[in-house]
Every structure is written in C-alpha cells, then in structure tokens.
Amino acid sequence: MMTYFSVAAALVLFAGLAVYILRSKYETSLLGARLDDSSGARTCAARCGEDVHVAGRVLSRVFSGEDEEFVAGLNSSRLERLLVQERKRLALHWVTRKVVEARGIMREHAQAARTARDLQISGELQLFARYLELRALCGLLFILVTAFGPAGMQRLAAETDARLLRIRGGRTSTAGLTAG
C-alpha cells in the first residue's frame, strides 16, 4: 500500500514541479495572454454592455425562443437552422466568458489576499466552494446548451416547471379531496 502511495507522491511531485517550471517559463506569454484576455473581455463588455440591465437583456434574448418563433413564421428551414446554430454558438461563448470571468475574479482575489495579514482559512475555503459551485453551474449550462440549444433548454425548463406545478396542483387537489 505504502509503495503505491510513495510512487504516486513522487509522480505528483514531478507533475507539480513540471507545471511550476512551465508556468514560470511562460509567465511573460501568460501575462500577455491575460492582458489580451482582459482587453478582449473589455471589448466584449463594451459590445454587450457590462451594465447589469443590458447584460440581462442580452442574456434573456439569447436564451429566449422569441426570435426562433419569428423565424419559424418565415418558413425557411435554412434560416431556422442558421439561427439555431448562431444562437448556440453565442450562448456557448457567453458561458465560456463567464468561466473566464470567474477565473479572473479568483485570480484577482488571490493576488489581493496573499498579502493580507488577517487572512482567514475558513473564508478562503468558503470562497473556493462558491467558485466550484459556479464552475459546476457553468459546466451544467454548457452541457444543456450543447444538447438542447439555448431556446430548447429554456423550453425544457419551462416544461419541467409546468409539470412540477401540475404535480403539485394534483397533489393539493388530492389532499383536498381526501380531507373533504
């Protein structure tokens, strides 16, 4: 048992060192990429509007079925397909940007917190858990959008909601009948 444990420890150490060395070696290029990334994010933010209301409007538009319904009325299957493809691409790009954003927030936090004398381990763990939760949500969103498309996903959510309401309603009426 200890043999495997020791071999695993050595391998993890080698991997850790390799990651660290590679990171140090390409620190400059990473920094450049980060700058590009942040400028890209700024461009996107400027385009989409970092303002919460604008971002909310863009989001609801991308994930709503409104435009798809309009295009369906035009009776062009090619246009419909194009719209679905474009929407999916846009939605996946949005999800990826959210992941990058979350990563950036954590990176900035680490840079600020590393010099804080009163750093609390519980705070760091709690924050890390929230970050993991966000990453999991993004992962789930990515899978759902890939599988059903943004509008399809919303339809699915609405259908599930309606079914749940029906079940709840049914249960309430059954309970009422039983009580009566």
Binding site: V52, A55, G56, L59, S60, F63, A91, W94, V95, K98, E101, A102, I105, M106, E108, H109, L127, R130, Y131, E133, L134, L137, C138, L140, L141, L144, P150, M153, Q154, A157, A158, D161
Partner: peptide, 18 residues
C-alpha cells in the same frame, strides 16, 4: 468584494439556467 462579484456572475448563470 470577491463574494459580491462571484455572486453577480452566479446570478447571471443561474438566470440562464432558469
């Protein structure tokens, strides 16, 4: 500050998930 920024991003993602 970090919690509030993460919370904002999370609310968007949760909104998209419905």
């Amino acid at each position: 500050q970090t919690n509030s920024r993460l919370g904002k991003t999370r609310s968007f993602v949760r909104g998209a998930l419905g």
